[in-house]
Design a binder for these strands. Structure first.
Lengths: 202, 202
DNA sequence: TCTCGCATGTAACGTGTTACATGATTCC
DNA sequence: GGAATCATGTAACACGTTACATGCGAGA
């Protein structure tokens, strides 16, 4: 399932321009798929070549011309055919988690900043999603939307409840678990030495 | 943060072969990052060229030679430097959610199968993760691990609690355990399948 | 027997990102 | 005045996947 197929799906709901499709990816679908102009426009061009979509050029007053795409009958068939294959694995690449994986090597203040920023992003995304009018969207969209809300809430809650484990007691107070070994005790005022020591191990 | 950097990070914890690094991506890190041999081996070669890692070739009895990589001092610096930049957005591409976005266009039985398969995947991943011995991993790893568990639980719970919204009540009334409720009748009240295709799948 | 695990790598291929190119209008 | 919105597109580039190539030993 590539950008082409998703464009086809979007067009199965109604006509749209490339620009409008891009906006959908930025808003409604941003929590599970992404696509840029550089992939959307070529995708629409290919779909046109294949006869799966067509477009009508619309001159506009004081605006660049628009190409309004609409799906063809062949496009609908191709799309449903694609949809009935079992979806492949989700692809995820989180620099955020990759960074925290090595959290104990970093200055606690930096880790705290990174986590705080991510919580804020989740909260912001949730606020936008909760403002969505569920009665005006399709059942599929509502389901996927709800999934996003559930996952973002869980993620934000986890970060809030557990950030102290990584940031360290010196910044936030009392004890954690047994003994986290790695995090050295830091003077309460100093930001962090960080890469001072050699920690060679094997 | 690309595969190269992650390899560097893994090697900052101790020496390893390319094969072992691949296994880590498949197990410990699979819920937030993925990498194949085709990206790992070239990454290690480049890191070697740049002087960020070194390796010692070890002949083995009845096994192919091993290249055991270890990080250099320059590698440690480069890695920490990379780590202190703010992580970029997570990249997610979920064919699963993209499919369900159009759930109402599909045969309910197919949607049900797709969701059931995904729940099973989450449960399986959770079982593997919960078997992890938290005392033997680093604080960073424990944190990321906990994040994964929290998110997978939320995802699985959402799917279980809401699948009926997409699949429709008529299919789920007998879902108890033993026998599959025959895909028998679809009363006029059932969600319209639109195009009930053969689904040559599974 | 045949598949899995160990172990390394290459090459072709596909896909997508980034930056560039253009240009009027509206909002702050 | 400068940024953002609307609107389309291209080209170079980076990155990663897939399949291929090799080969032995152990266990089912």
């Amino acid at each position: 399932m590539d950008v082409k197929t998703l464009c086809l799906g979007i067009l199965s709901r109604g006509e749209a321009t490339g620009y409008e499709i891009k906006k959908l990816f930025e808003t409604d679908y941003s929590h599970f798929y992404e696509a840029s102009f550089g992939s959307i426009y070529p995708a629409l061009a290919k779909l046109t070549d294949e006869g799966l979509v067509s477009f009508s050029q619309q001159a506009q007053d004081k605006r660049p011309d628009k190409k309004v795409y609409r799906i063809t009958a062949a496009g609908r068939l191709a799309f449903l055919d694609e949809l009935t294959t079992m979806p492949g694995r989700d692809r995820i690449r989180s620099e955020f988690l990759a960074t925290l994986l090595f959290g104990e090597l970093l200055a606690p203040a930096h880790v705290d900043r990174v986590i705080a920023a991510r919580i804020a992003e989740y909260r912001e995304a949730l606020a936008a999603m909760e403002a969505c009018d569920l009665d005006r969207i399709t059942p599929g969209h509502a389901f996927v939307h709800g999934f996003g809300v559930a996952v973002y809430r869980a993620a934000a809650a986890y970060l809030e409840e557990n950030r102290h484990l990584l940031v360290g007691e010196t910044l936030l107070n009392g004890n954690g678990n047994g003994h986290p070994a790695a995090v050295a005790s830091q003077p309460a005022t100093a930001p962090a030495p960080m890469l001072a020591r050699s920690e060679n191990r094997s």
